[in-house]
């Protein structure tokens, strides 16, 4: 669209690069819309090929962590160690992670990347999960790690709207962590800042 109105460059190679970059921008913005739930965001922002590649790496890291969390909650739910209402909570949290993973995978695809696949087998410490508190502690450690992972992703995502969407997921993971700590009898919010 806008490209057609630009002055043609005598250097075909440069122009091709530009077109490629623009294509990545359009896809990036669509990914933003996917995560942020706002289609008009597809009209703003810009990203170079390298930064778009970085965004793919960042989103795929987050996706891998979400897939692992889904598998961990599945393990917990099937362990027979979780009783109501904790079991229902775990299933609900797993549902959140599925929604995160779905949105992240679509964003990666729209950016032109390939979403990472879940591992065939996660080497969870099953031998150490002997009671409900063990499962909750394990889940809490993953949720805390997820908060840190998103905290490490938000400042380096190219697009501010995409960063905003990642921060939204971060908030959800932090709530999971706090609730799990509460269930474990620990102070749910131990510090003023996350790291």
């Amino acid at each position: 669209m806008t490209i057609a109105r630009l002055s043609p460059t005598p250097d075909g190679e440069i122009r091709r690069s530009f077109l490629t970059g623009f294509g990545k921008f359009t896809l990036s913005a669509t990914a933003i819309a996917l995560l942020a739930g706002n289609e008009r965001l597809a009209l703003i922002g810009s990203a170079s090929a390298q930064t778009a590649n970085n965004d793919v790496a960042i989103l795929n890291s987050a996706l891998g962590a979400e897939q692992q969390a889904i598998a961990a909650y599945q393990l917990g739910a099937e362990s027979g160690l979780l009783q109501k209402p904790v079991l229902a909570l775990a299933v609900q949290f797993q549902g959140h992670h599925k929604q995160h993973a779905d949105a992240l995978a679509k964003a990666v695809q729209k950016l032109g990347g390939k979403p990472v696949a879940p591992l065939k087998d996660y080497a969870f410490p099953k031998d150490k999960l002997k009671k409900e508190a063990d499962v909750l502690s394990f889940a809490a450690s993953l949720e805390k790690g997820a908060v840190s992972a998103y905290l490490g992703a938000v400042p380096i995502l190219t697009d501010r709207e995409l960063a905003k969407a990642a921060a939204s997921i971060l908030g959800d993971e932090a709530m999971h962590w706090a609730v799990l700590r509460q269930a474990l009898g620990q102070p749910p919010v131990p510090d003023a800042f996350m790291s």
Binding site: S61, G64, A65, Q67, Q68, A69, L119, Y122, A123, P125, S141, L142, K144, G145, A146, S148, A149, L151, G152, S195
Partner: peptide, 16 residues
């Protein structure tokens, strides 16, 4: 600080 790594890493097994 290592707790920040736990979404993707573990000491004794491959993860993400």
């Amino acid at each position: 600080i290592y707790h920040r790594c736990l979404a993707c890493h573990a000491l004794n097994h491959n993860s993400v």
